[in-house]
Design a protein around this nucleic acid. Structure first.
Lengths: 112, 112
DNA sequence: GTAGTGTGTCACCCGCGGCTGAGATATATG
DNA sequence: CATATATCTCAGCCGCGGGTGACACACTAC
């Protein structure tokens, strides 16, 4: 027990647990070598799964798994192109990526 | 083998693997409930380990472990304050947090 | 000195998530 | 139709990282 509690900082044991569910979900999506690589590669336009797999030196089914995660989160879109309907081309959803970045800002940007 | 390769998009199997080490490291740091919570709580100023542990409903040694990770990455600083030298107060390094956010921008921001 | 509190360190356990392999589906060609 | 390529799905395995427990260390009060 402190001798002089008025000069000591008050200990706050009743701080509210912060709501970090959404930014945490965004961080978890980026916290994987292959998913981060996919998003980086797709910055320069759409690519098909086999191109991504070759660039990442991973198997296509593994890349497809990660693409499904990103697709479920809305960060990428899939589409078959007219002249090459066998392949599935993926492209970034820039609006969703910006939204995810905004979530991460709530963790890393000062409140001010 | 395509019958008419001139009308089909060229498949790029020689894409360079992107360098994502630094943004990946930043994402891995944020991709944990307790570390994300610590950064969120510290937005409103320094707090000691026991306060963080209480807010996160975690044991102090566990919180201390995560603080060490954030400290090694430079995102937070530790200091003992004059009037309360028993406790260790942690505060965000806003410059480092901004730098980490800049790394994540390389994944989520359009290149333009 | 001893006792008590706050924090740090580390080995260990264990669950979660990434990778794999097998199979299914889709599209094209012969 | 059969064959080939590209992608998708999912159960299972396994390594990595977070939580725990025990202990050491730092500081205060007595």
């Amino acid at each position: 027990m402190p001798a002089d509690s008025s000069t000591l900082p008050e200990i706050r044991l009743d701080l509210a647990p912060p709501d970090i569910e959404t930014p945490l979900a965004a961080a978890l999506l980026l916290a994987d070598r292959n998913r981060a690589g996919i998003l980086a590669i797709l910055r320069d336009g759409p690519h098909c799964v086999c191109e991504l797999a070759a660039a990442l030196d991973e198997r296509s089914n593994n890349v497809s798994n990660h693409l499904a995660r990103l697709r479920d989160a809305g960060l990428v879109r899939a589409s078959r192109m007219a002249l090459d309907t066998r392949r599935v081309y993926y492209e970034r959803d820039e609006a969703a990526c910006t939204a995810a970045l905004a979530q991460l800002r709530t963790l890393l940007e000062p409140t001010r």
